[in-house]
Amino acid sequence: MTSGAADAAYDDDTLIARLLERDERAFRWLVRQLHGMMLAFARSFVRDAALAEEVVQETWVAVIDGLARFERRSTLKTWIYSILANKARTAAQRARRTVAFSDLGPAGGDPVDPDRFMANGHWASPIEPWDAMTPERIVAGQHLWTVARGAIELLPEAQRAVLILRDVEEQDGPTVASLLGISEGNQRVLLHRARASVRDALSKIMTDPQKAGPDKKTTQTGQGPRRQS
């Protein structure tokens, strides 16, 4: 029996059962859900794109082969990412690359650049509203995602790995810390920094670029277009 709607979401039990029945549609669905982010995650360990692809492919092979023995002590996604993390770590070692995920870099645990604050702790310059979040922009959410995705790719490796696991794949903090072999505190610091960076990247396109342009005030009275919210 195959699923109805092509893109219906599967729960873990259904998905595993379908995969064990060799349901290709279920497998393709899983690949669409995970593959892109798995690649980005693997590149946190191995910089080389071709090698990262190899690591992810090996992970899929191990998933297919090992599924019948998967004991379901974690979710399927967590299990897949733990295989991926192991394989990526091994590949990084083979490539003689050490991944210092616990190295938090300068400035202690501050997610936002200290230079953006005055001595008294206030913002040195105002936070601009995201005026560009118009309905049209929301419809064009694809563009927003492209920007966010680009920002994720540019994050320092450890931050990228944590953000992908925590926010994209929605794994909890302890799981992520143990997957990456870092402390929960470090995991949190990396996450905060990563989120702040992605927010900064989005801010560049979300703050109104036309402020200096011709007057675009929405009409408050009369028949002019009126935006509620």
Binding site: G109, D110, P111, V112, H122, R188, H192, R195
Partner: peptide
């Protein structure tokens, strides 16, 4: 302060 907020916003 604002800086404190920026440190805690994510949590």
């Amino acid at each position: 302060t604002c800086r404190d907020v920026s440190r805690r916003a994510s949590t």
